[in-house]
Amino acid sequence: MNFNKDTNQAYLYIAPAVILVSLICIYPIIRTFIMSFTDNDGLNPANFIGFDNYIKLFLDPNYIIPIKNTIIWTVLATVFPVAIGFLFAYSIQFLPRSNFFQILIYIPATVSAAAAGVLFGFILDKSGLFNQVLALIGFEHLNRDWLFRAPENTYSMIGAYTWQATGINMMIFLVGLQGLPKEPMEAAKIDGAKGFTLIFKIVIPMIMPYFVIASLLALINSFRIFDSVWVMTMGGPGRYSETLAVTMYREGFIIFDLGYAAAVAVLISLVGLVFSYYYLKSVLTKEDVS
């Protein structure tokens, strides 16, 4: 490696960030990884137990539900916020006061997940607003305690999450749509393309990189979903709405099997890392192209 004055200076510039990231991110990651091979309970000296925690994780039938729920979350909490975000972005760009609608749709994204969870706890309660609205429009027979019954509780929470996550996706798509060249659109319109044909054949292919970015971001966030679930149902009742991140918290901070919780955390991080790799690859490729 050839060090000269310029490169030394460059290293000095990035040193604070590197040190901070190492201390705050890298060190805990390494500690967690090591902990996942121990029986650490936070009280007694930890013993190395090899892959026992990982074997337990994959063999324990109790983890079928969290894994299943995490997959449902990952799929639906990616598809809905991204699709609805795109629809909003595409629709409001033609409106005269689009800024107003942008703000309106983005506001939920500024609310903390915990606060939104409390809010939706009330809305989805047996006597909550959602059931009242259903009754008002003649669907009283659909009334139920949305957070108490499985699988309704998982789907309800995904609905609440979609309310929050749509705004950020809409913003991503607005940026993409605003940067589109006008000529191909006009040419397509002259050739008779309109409505869904125009959207699916012209617009979506042209902003595909933004779809990839929005989808990967949504995948990363939904795979590690914790706060919304913890606030609304704590993964219950009967663990029926538990996700892997809730499992991690429960094992770590309720049962204090920190080694096992670390193994779950490593699994979540590895999957998140794969999504993040593709996310960064697509972002960096896009930047290279531009």
């Binding site: 019954r149 009742p237 009967g238 663990r239 029926y240 049962i255």
Partner: peptide, 17 residues
Amino acid sequence: PTEICEAAVDEISKFVL
């Protein structure tokens, strides 16, 4: 024991459901 109790409350919840 806590390990039994914490998991048992979820199992008993399944009975209530």
